[in-house]
Design a protein around this nucleic acid. Structure first.
Lengths: 197, 197
DNA sequence: CCGGTAGGTCAACACCTGTTGGCCAACGCT
DNA sequence: AGCGTTGGCCAACAGGTGTTGACCTACCGG
């Protein structure tokens, strides 16, 4: 009954008591978009998941597209690969991606949705340049080659991700991380460090 | 006016004079699904494109999902690679895929839609086994390895296709066929013929 | 000449969607 | 105590959806 009665100030910034709700909406949205895709994920369903009224979603995020934009921000969590030797780069990258995709199911979901309806044009471009690019740069001496090498690495890693996490092709899902690394790491390694053809 | 007045029997099978309409519907459906995705491609729009009534679509294909199933049958048109030497296999495959994707825009579209909402589970699996598999088999002696090698080849080719034709990342779209082949062919070649790790 | 049937249209149904504006309750400040 | 602001809910709107069944029309066999 008395519940918790938090002190008036919960910090230096007044945290807008509704931040909790805002976050709940976003969490529910990510899950719904992930499971159902953009069109099938209805605002009503998201609101129900978050235990609030549909109109609240609009108040907080303006409209459905705004909600989606907020929900589909992807963070690859690329480490800086500081201690990684150049000839281990391919393996390190492939392992990181496998782990990342596996630990965060919403990654696959957001990719699916992103591919489906071209809502966020140029978003993936930014993702490549902003997140994958810097990692590639650490192993690639010639700056001019970075975009292309980044794209090549992405093509292989992304293709594997599509097969394994989106399509869930049995042949691929049944492979172990080590097996995948054994095949993909040399490819990625070549894209990173081989001299230009 | 007189138009063509076909004889009563145009063959052993009576060709159901409506086959023309049926085909028109399907053509419009492919285009619409391609452009707008599954949910946004409305039956009304498809019918309008085909210059018929929406209800005709239902008569011919039962419901929207049936229409989609009919419209999303992908034919990779794999040649038999009879005259291709083993060490040219990678290049031959990559070139074929590039050409195929380029000449038939609906391929990309259908992939997009197929990825979006898991309507056709196991469909891509069948596509791999039925169409890519046999091509791989021609260059792979050990039958047991075919599924896995097929999947690996697919991962690279498909990843490139996603970047180039779905996401249309500038870095990738600006590459020439020869450049792509130069990078991808060795990878595919290795997936086809390298000894198991 | 005439009736059946295939191909096609029309109008409507029932439903669900994103979105909006008005109303209510609780809280913090003065 | 009183007041404004904030967070939240309710009910409704306008529009678009897949889908259905009744109706029409021209052809073709007998």
């Amino acid at each position: 009954m008395t519940e918790n009665s938090p002190p008036a100030d919960t910090g230096t910034h007044r945290p807008r008591r509704s931040e909790a709700t805002r976050a709940a909406i976003l969490r529910a949205a990510v899950a719904r978009f992930a499971a159902d895709g953009y069109e099938r994920a209805t605002i009503r369903a998201i609101a129900r998941d978050a235990d609030i009224d549909p109109s609240m979603v609009m108040r907080y995020y303006g409209n459905k597209e705004g909600l989606f934009r907020a929900a589909s921000e992807i963070d690859l969590r690329m480490p800086d690969f500081a201690g990684v030797r150049a000839e281990e780069a391919g393996e390190a990258l492939v392992r990181h991606f496998l782990q990342r995709w596996e630990e965060d199911g919403s990654l696959a979901a957001m990719l699916r949705v992103g591919l489906a309806s071209g809502l966020d044009e140029g978003r993936q471009q930014a993702l490549l340049e902003g997140q994958v690019g810097p990692a590639v740069a650490r192993f690639c001496a010639v700056p001019a080659e970075i975009p292309r090498r980044t794209a090549l690495v992405a093509s292989q890693v992304l293709g594997m991700a599509v097969l394994r996490y989106l399509l869930e092709v049995p042949t691929v899902t049944s492979m172990t991380h080590d097996e995948i690394v054994a095949w993909l790491a040399p490819t990625v390694q070549r894209y990173l460090t081989a001299e230009t053809a």
